[in-house]
Design a binder for these strands. Structure first.
Length: 114
DNA sequence: CTCGTGACTCCCG
DNA sequence: TCGGGAGCCACGA
């Protein structure tokens, strides 16, 4: 498995309960700002194997990308269980629920070195 | 090796 | 606002 893939897994597992992030951010944190599409694929193929909180990943607009009947409802239910609120009934307010692993002297996310 | 395929994003008109 | 198009890239067939 490639480093990027491992990083994606690590980043997703690091998302705290009650917070969400976007595919693009996960990709960026994993070291590939252009790898958003890969992230979606990993969720699809590795979520069970690595027990990932896949539901905490939404698109850049703060919405669930899954179509209804294809996981939308399940994801939304899981998020609401954690306290995430859908404003307007469809989108998540990033200013409140976005997970920001801001660089911190010690609390930095375990992103590998370039 | 090449090709199709996305639970994405960004940029324009 | 909204939709279309192009960029991107790992992975399985």
């Amino acid at each position: 498995m490639q480093r990027f893939t491992q990083n994606v897994v690590a980043v997703i597992q690091a998302i705290p309960k009650g917070k969400v992030t976007s595919y693009g951010r996960v990709a960026a944190l994993a070291g590939n700002p252009r790898g958003a599409r890969q992230v979606s694929r990993y969720l699809h193929s590795l979520s069970e194997k690595y027990d990932l909180p896949w539901h905490r990943v939404v698109n850049a607009a703060g919405k669930i990308s899954l179509p209804k009947g294809r996981g939308y409802e399940q994801q939304r239910a899981l998020l609401e269980d954690e306290g995430v609120v859908f404003s307007g009934s469809r989108s998540i307010d990033f200013s409140v629920f976005l997970w920001e692993p801001v660089s911190h002297p010690d609390g930095q996310l375990m992103v590998p070195q370039p």
